[in-house]
Simulated scan of single mutants.
Amino acid sequence: MKRRITALMMAAAMCMSLVACGGSNTSTTENNNTAESGSAAAKDASDLKIGLVTDVGGVNDGSFNQTAWEGMERAGKDFGVTVNYLESSTDADYAPNLETFADEEYDMIISIGYMLADATRNAAEQNPDIKFAIVDDATIDLPNVTCLMFRAEQASYLAGYVAGKTTKTNNIGYVAGMANETMNQFGYGYCAGALDAKPDVKIQQFNANSFGDAATGKTMANTAITNGADVIFHAAAATGLGVIEACHEAGVYAIGVDSDQSGISPDTVLTSAMKRVDNAVYDAIESLVNGTLESSVHTYDLAEGGVDIAPSKDLIADDVVAEVEEVKQKIIDGEIEVPADKESFEAKYGDVYELD
């Protein structure tokens, strides 16, 4: 079985950049600074070029960047636009990759992740005639930049609720790729959901400080397993592949992130906290094609299908599936307010979140 999961992960890493899937959904607009239509909107779609710059996880991370590229590929097929990507091996690659697309006169450049914020801001200031979009950052207020945000805490709350209801040892784990304001949203939601499901559950928390280190993810998961965890959630992109592998080898459950990661290990991945980056990227390209792209902050939430847990629920008990659907509706209706920051989390749950 170890050879099987390793083979599956290698195959996914080699071929997923060729797979196209995704969809579109509506989004809320928090800021209404409408960008000038510019030369891009005047072009035929077949003449438009859109580039994607990954963070260090790479386009085959099985998660965040890969999902974004899948949305790009679908947009390319649906609208006839040209799409391309450049991978960043280190943070030193961000600015050169953005500059490469700008020098090649791409009409739109999409940055994947808040770690690209500074480089994206600089590139947008230097290239006012090019449209830019960035995922998971809302700090850039420029007329040619669109910010794509997500209520990640809502999806991870549902994942935490599943973990709390599923654990037999009353002990679960969480591996974060980074500890910062954006990534802590995953942690606050997960811990809140788990504690609402089982108030006395133990939550082991780890910060890998990397989105591209599967070995560290595996080590941290093994530590949690040794200390009694039987469900481990990762919000760590490619680092999380190591978490899933460790869980597979130990025969405990993993919870994936960003996309439905059950295909990596069908008998291991209990569910996934999905952040539909593919939808957001697709929407941005569609708006560019239609000439309606705005320089605003678009926030995708549970009500719009921008976040959710994975549709694959074969490993979750039927009664838990039913409870999760009820909880989901309560979040949508505003009956459950999921904490997205330290203050709101500690107001209800106390000082139990360790990574901020």
Rank of each mutant, 00 (worst) to 15 (best):
T271Q: 01
S295R: 12
G263Y: 12
A254N: 07
Y253Q: 04
V231P: 02
I285W: 07
V277R: 04
L241S: 15
A284P: 14
K275V: 00
I264A: 09
P266D: 09
N227E: 13
N222H: 15
N290K: 12
D230G: 08
V252A: 15
H248K: 15
V289D: 07
D278K: 13
S295W: 07
H234T: 03
A224Q: 14
E245G: 04
D260E: 06
D258F: 00
L241C: 01
Q261C: 01
G291F: 15
V257C: 10
H234N: 05
A221M: 09
V231I: 01
A280Y: 09
S272I: 00
E294N: 09
G228A: 01
D230R: 02
A273E: 09
A229K: 10
D258M: 02
V257Q: 07
A224S: 13
G228H: 02
L241K: 10
S272H: 00
V257R: 01
G228W: 12
F233A: 10
N222W: 11
V231A: 06
G228M: 08
V252T: 15
I285M: 13
A246D: 08
G228D: 02
T268C: 03
R276M: 15
V289C: 04
A238D: 08
M274Q: 05
E286W: 05
A238G: 05
L241F: 11
V243S: 10
I255E: 08
H248Q: 13
V281E: 02
L293G: 06
G228L: 12
I232H: 06
T223K: 13
G256P: 01
